[in-house]
Computed example of a mutant assay.
Amino acid sequence: MSTGVTDKTQKTIGGIRRKFAPWNDPGAVPLIRYKNVTKRFGEFTAVDNLSLDIYEREFFALLGPSGCGKTTLMRMLAGFEEPTEGQITLAGQDLVGMPPYRRQTNMMFQSYALFPHMSVWDNIAFGLKQDGMEKAAVAARVEEMLKLVKLETFARRKPHQLSGGQRQRVALARSLAKRPKVLLLDEPLGALDKKLREATQFELMDIQMELGMTFLIVTHDQEEAMTVADRIAVMDHGRLVQVAPPAEVYEQPNCRYVADFVGDVNIIDAKIESVAPGAVRLRSDAADMSLMIAQDVEAKPGDQAWIAIRPEKVRVDLDPPVEQGVNCLSGTIWDIGYLGDLSIYHVELPNGARIKAAKPNLTRVVERPISWDDKVWVSWTPDAGVVLTR
């Protein structure tokens, strides 16, 4: 049973998160600004003429596959790399040429990089002592950090006496102890198991909100980025492809690359038949009928397009749907994946193409379960899919 204090805190955080959107305020001044930044390693361009604004108190995620430039972008902010061209500013101060120790940033590495011969307490205190902080102030700050990450009873243990999750918390506390303007998180949860990683994601969000700090996280884990971030920058080959809040990136991808990279998706090749305000009619080889998507689009009849539809928005039934205005295709169950909370059905269409549908398992017993080789109907409403033109 939760306490009144916890409920009040949750409501407060929820209220802040719902209203927080400085990127929509024309008068808001970014805390971090990348302006036409390029980074080359020899002939290889890791970051290509990139501009990006990140705001104070924002939890921002750089998301993309290995080699897309996200870690290089973070390392340039930290001072471990210098841009070949362009400018990086933090709170209006130009960072180019400034050594890492003078920047108001701190970085938490995937390996944690804890000192094995030092206790938890001394690991957290190390940077504070290096800065010449008074002994009493160091002690107070370390105790504050231990309480923040819930490790008060582990203060005298060495790193090898801790679990992976506890070591991760020590590294986080050490990174936060110096109270940087920006905390940089480089794949911080990659070494944790799935359940611990999911729990730690929410702890990171709560700590970030409690401290009112700006967090910048680099990850290739889409679920992690979707969970923790206020906004996500999806990267590819050193460029920004889309920068938006998680729900927008998932529900309204701006191109096939984003739709395919973030989450699971069906992408159907199609040609545009007609365009009207708020509606697009398309023809696909996968269907013997026109498909309707409720969306405004800048295109004309005959243009190449793609329909992106998430599996959880596709219905799969043994009988054809009775609703009007539903996109509907017939097919045969080719494969089934049972995931506990839901089942994934791979449906083979008459032309050999396959489409995935996700169906929640709402009850333990199904009178007539859908099985392999069954003839089924897959369908989705006009507002469930997205038309992509690039």
Rank of each mutant, 00 (worst) to 15 (best):
R141N: 01
P246F: 03
I307W: 05
F154P: 05
E152C: 03
A270S: 12
A287D: 02
I355W: 10
P180C: 12
L318C: 05
A21E: 08
Q104L: 07
Q87F: 03
E152H: 04
E82V: 10
V262R: 09
A305M: 04
A270Y: 09
R33S: 14
T153Y: 11
L339E: 13
A244P: 13
R157S: 14
K19V: 03
S111F: 00
E203G: 02
A125T: 04
D236V: 12
L318K: 15
A286H: 12
D206N: 12
I267V: 14
E210R: 14
F154S: 13
D230Q: 06
E323M: 13
F261Y: 12
K300R: 12
C255S: 15
I293A: 14
Q304M: 10
L349M: 01
E85R: 13
P277S: 13
R156T: 11
L362C: 03
K150H: 14
R239A: 13
T45L: 04
K313L: 08
P99C: 08
D193Q: 10
N351L: 06
P159D: 05
V322K: 15
R157H: 10
E144N: 11
P382L: 11
K135G: 02
N24Y: 05
E323Y: 03
G331L: 08
N36Q: 12
D373A: 08
D264M: 09
C328V: 14
E58K: 02
N266I: 07
Q130L: 15
D186A: 06
S163P: 09
A247N: 11
A199C: 00
